[in-house]
Computed example of a mutant assay.
Amino acid sequence: MIATREGSTPMGKLTTYRDKRAGLRAHAAALKSTAMTEAKLAAKETRKQAREAHRVELAEAKKRAKLEGKNADRKAKREEKRAEKQNKLDRKAAKRDRKAEKVHAKEERKTIKREAKILATGSSPRRSTPPAASTSTSWPRWSSTSSRAPSWARTTCNVG
């Protein structure tokens, strides 16, 4: 008897079983291949997303670095201006101190000269008294219509 695929002999059943197994194996291989392809595509997509995220992150880092650089430049400029102002104030203060020292030294020389003169003449220093106030002070009297009178005198009431 010849074994056929659809025969009823045990050999026919074996052949059918082998065929079924081969078909299943082929199907499994196809599924595995499809799964591998899908996995590869997913990995490829993940790598693409990671590259894009990295590119965005680098762009943001570059932008932050640029901004920080600008801020540092501004800060340095402010610091430089502050130092200039302080330097200018210090120069002014030094000039003021030199002037004050000059005046003080001049007065000191005057005092020494005066004391030397007094010692040389051998007399005591004169005490000067302020002159007595004069009682005959006459204030100018203007009429309110006088053209020579100051403006405040022309606008006020003429009392008199």
Results as ranks from 00 to 15, higher is better:
residue 60 E to R: 13
residue 28 A to T: 12
residue 30 A to V: 00
residue 77 K to V: 15
residue 153 A to G: 01
residue 152 W to K: 14
residue 132 A to G: 03
residue 94 A to V: 08
residue 77 K to I: 14
residue 14 L to I: 13
residue 40 K to Q: 07
residue 4 T to E: 03
residue 40 K to W: 01
residue 144 S to T: 15
residue 87 N to H: 10
residue 102 K to W: 07
residue 17 Y to C: 07
residue 139 W to Q: 13
residue 135 T to E: 09
residue 136 S to V: 08
residue 149 A to T: 07
residue 18 R to K: 13
residue 1 M to F: 08
residue 127 R to L: 13
residue 62 K to F: 07
residue 9 T to C: 04
residue 83 A to C: 02
residue 64 R to K: 14
residue 86 Q to R: 02
residue 108 E to C: 11
residue 22 A to G: 07
residue 34 T to F: 00
residue 72 A to W: 04
residue 34 T to G: 01
residue 17 Y to K: 12
residue 50 A to F: 02
residue 111 T to G: 09
residue 115 E to Y: 05
residue 124 S to F: 11
residue 7 G to R: 05
residue 46 T to R: 03
residue 138 S to W: 04
residue 33 S to Y: 02
residue 74 R to V: 11
residue 105 A to M: 03
residue 42 A to G: 12
residue 67 L to R: 07
residue 4 T to D: 02
residue 134 S to F: 01
residue 155 T to P: 01
residue 83 A to P: 00
residue 141 R to W: 09
residue 5 R to M: 14
residue 59 A to C: 08
residue 76 A to W: 06
residue 22 A to T: 12
residue 141 R to D: 05
residue 158 N to T: 13
residue 152 W to E: 11
residue 50 A to Q: 02
residue 3 A to N: 06
residue 117 K to E: 08
residue 106 K to A: 14
residue 84 E to D: 12
residue 24 L to S: 14
residue 66 K to S: 00
residue 114 R to K: 12
residue 116 A to R: 09
residue 29 A to L: 10
residue 35 A to L: 05
residue 96 R to I: 13
residue 123 S to I: 12
residue 150 P to G: 09
residue 50 A to H: 01
residue 6 E to L: 12
residue 118 I to S: 12
residue 78 R to T: 08
residue 119 L to G: 15
residue 47 R to Y: 02
residue 113 K to T: 14
residue 52 E to G: 03
